[in-house]
């Protein structure tokens, strides 16, 4: 059974991407910003990791330093988007696209003009590797758990609460003396830091860093968020558990991905399918409201009773 054999690998990959998805959750759900920087910052993480590994002694210690540098690079990427948005008044989606484009060039420069650099387990003492998915699962789970705990604590602080309020209601936040621009920048930095960290881990796991590795990352992150919410949102209210449901979402995404491939699905179509899945899940709340909300329906019915031909 090729699918069963591929399962540990799918889970490991899902967990690596889960870190990225948590980053997307911070912008998309907490800040209420669809941040497209991530397609660039994910590859930035991989690029920084690959170049640092190349210039290091290749020990496990330097792999960790490389990951921290990747995280720092991601923070800077988020800072750029944040400044474009808050200082130049450019809408967040466009700000993210601009930074994404900036990062395309930056990533190429980081990788010395190469589109692909090896981060091979034969050369370096990588943290996680494709040939040992079980260990990769254990280690990545540990990292994910640490991140969730740290974020749970952070978003419970005064600053974290102010960031949540900023994403929830700008008018209220300003009236309560919250510097909403600063908070948006902090949130974007945090998010892209995690996204770059995820990219750094993936480059080790797959054994190379690629200029294209972030293409469509936002869709995978969103898919993880919406799948996690679709399954768990009814039962979990706690913030840490909601982050955990995003992690499950990412893992489920990669298991399904693997299943579809093992069923003989054309891999060229995978990105399209992912996007369709995200569109459907994000569209469900709107469709529900439009067709199933009793209040709206009642209004429609009474209108029909009185007016007659407004049933379009």
């Amino acid at each position: 059974m090729p699918f069963i054999n591929a399962l540990p690998g799918a889970v490991a990959q899902g967990l690596v991407w889960a870190i990225m998805a948590i980053g997307v959750y911070i912008t998309f759900r907490i800040l209420d910003i669809a941040d497209l920087t991530v397609d660039g910052s994910f590859a930035t993480g991989g690029a920084v990791m690959a170049i640092y590994a190349l210039n290091s002694d290749g020990s496990a210690g330097s792999m960790i330093v490389g990951m921290l540098l990747a995280l720092a690079a991601g923070l800077v990427a988020g800072l750029i988007t944040g400044l474009i948005h808050t200082r130049l008044g450019i809408p967040p989606i466009l700000s993210g696209i601009l930074t994404q484009l900036i990062l395309w060039s930056v990533n190429l420069k980081i990788m010395g003009g190469k589109a692909n650099i090896s981060v091979s387990a034969r050369q370096y003492d990588v943290i996680i590797k494709l040939s040992d998915p079980v260990w990769a699962i254990v280690k990545t789970l540990g990292i994910v758990a640490l991140i969730i705990i740290a974020l749970y604590l952070f978003f419970g602080t005064e600053l974290g609460s102010a960031i949540r309020a900023t994403g929830n209601n700008l008018k209220m936040s300003r009236a309560q003396g919250i510097n909403v621009n600063l908070n948006k920048v902090i949130g974007l930095m945090l998010s892209n830091g995690l996204v770059a960290l995820s990219g750094a881990l993936l480059s080790q796991y797959q054994g190379f860093s690629d200029i294209n590795m972030g293409r469509g990352a936002i869709v995978i992150g969103l898919a993880a968020v919406v799948i996690g919410e679709a399954i768990f949102s009814k039962i979990v209210r706690n913030f840490a558990l909601r982050l955990a449901s995003v992690v499950f979402g990412a893992v489920i995404y990669y298991i399904v991905y693997q299943l579809v491939i093992s069923l003989g699905m054309d891999t060229d179509l995978m990105k399209m399918l992912s996007a369709i899945v995200v569109a459907i899940f994000l569209g469900i709340p709107y469709l529900k409201k439009k067709y199933l909300d009793p209040a709206v329906k009642a209004k429609k019915d009474s209108k029909n009773g009185a007016g007659g031909d407004e049933n379009a």
């Binding site: 005064e158 609460s161 929830n168 309560q176």
Partner: peptide, 22 residues
């Protein structure tokens, strides 16, 4: 803030004009 609970909203208001620390 509609996604935050009553006490969280009050806590934010209690910090109006103060630095938001950790």
């Amino acid at each position: 803030a509609s996604d935050m609970n009553i006490e969280e909203n009050l806590a934010i208001a209690a910090r109006r004009g103060k630095k938001h620390t950790l």
